[in-house]
Amino acid sequence: MLERFFISIRPVWFYALLLLLPLGWFAWGATTGTRLLGDDNESTETLGAPGTRGSHGHAGRGLYFHK
């Protein structure tokens, strides 16, 4: 069955290899507990460990806008 599958996808074998990248990225995110689009951590202290690419805009006190 697996052999038939590999024969079937032969015309797109290069794309099949390429697909391993996003699937691997997803598996890495799932096993390490990482939100792939970045998380909300703003701490420079933990830059190396968890994802520190904030996905939200962060406004400090001085920038806070309200009515």
Binding site: S43, G60, Y64, K67
Partner: peptide, 27 residues
């Protein structure tokens, strides 16, 4: 009213910190 809320998650054993700020408002 509005609320600006900086939050720190602190590891009590290592002191490692995670921080984020949420600006919440409701009128």
């Amino acid at each position: 009213q509005w609320l600006e809320l900086p939050v720190s998650l602190v590891n009590e054993q290592t002191g490692q910190g995670f921080e984020f700020t949420k600006n919440i408002e409701f009128y």
